[in-house]
């Protein structure tokens, strides 16, 4: 059985176990038999567009809460009275504007793909993460829905492995029925090895 990022292209891994990556460091660009790099954006699926709305609304709510908190602290604890309104408003506005602008960026960076042997995800605006989670390492899969997600008809999928960093990988912003079918699919695919 072949496992690779791209099924049409076998990885260089099994041919010569010692050479490939060793040379990759010294000169990565000319590496001939390197496995095809998983940088194929049009092959990745993006999240449901509604997730942008979800993130913006979440930002709005976060802004309201922190703004109210900051305002209340300044108004009552520092006894500034009605003047506490302005810093509170400022915090609210900053959070809201930030999440308004940030959410589309996040959306644009998010991509995932469920393949024959693994789930591949790429996300992150500042810290960019490219992860691969083999089905055979799966412990279990959950779907989760918060109030906002329920209202928008969205759900997120949480994939658990026995690892540390990758112990939990979340794919947010999936249409509800997609998330559920994906969960069932992963549940079926993920029956393999004794994971540790």
């Amino acid at each position: 059985m072949q496992y690779s990022y791209n099924r049409s292209d076998p990885p260089g891994g099994e041919a010569n176990p010692d050479e490939a990556p060793a040379e990759a460091t010294t000169d990565p660009t000319t590496e001939a038999d390197a496995p095809l790099l998983p940088t194929i954006p049009d092959e990745l699926r993006s999240l449901d567009r509604r997730v942008v709305v979800q993130w913006r609304l979440a930002g709005l709510i976060r802004g309201l809460v922190t703004g109210a908190l900051v305002g209340a602290v300044i108004a009552f604890l520092f006894e500034q009275g009605i003047d506490g309104l302005w810093p509170g408003l400022a915090v609210f506005a900053a959070t809201a504007i930030f999440s308004f602008l940030w959410s589309p960026l996040r959306f644009r960076r998010w991509g995932y793909r469920v393949r024959d042997a693994d789930v591949f995800v790429r996300y992150g605006v500042l810290w960019r993460v490219t992860s691969v989670i083999p089905h055979r390492r799966l412990q279990h899969v959950d779907t989760e829905r918060g109030p906002l997600e329920r209202w928008l008809g969205l759900a997120r999928i949480v994939i658990y492995t026995a690892g540390n960093r990758g112990a939990q990988t979340t794919i947010p912003g999936l249409a509800r029925e997609d998330a559920e079918s994906l969960r069932d699919l992963l549940g079926r695919l993920g029956q393999g090895d004794d994971a540790v």
């Binding site: 496992y3 990022y5 260089g12 891994g13 693994d118 490219t130 691969v132």
Partner: peptide
């Protein structure tokens, strides 16, 4: 990314 792919296959 190359090393990731290689290790993954191996």
């Amino acid at each position: 990314l190359t090393l990731q792919a290689t290790l993954y296959a191996r």
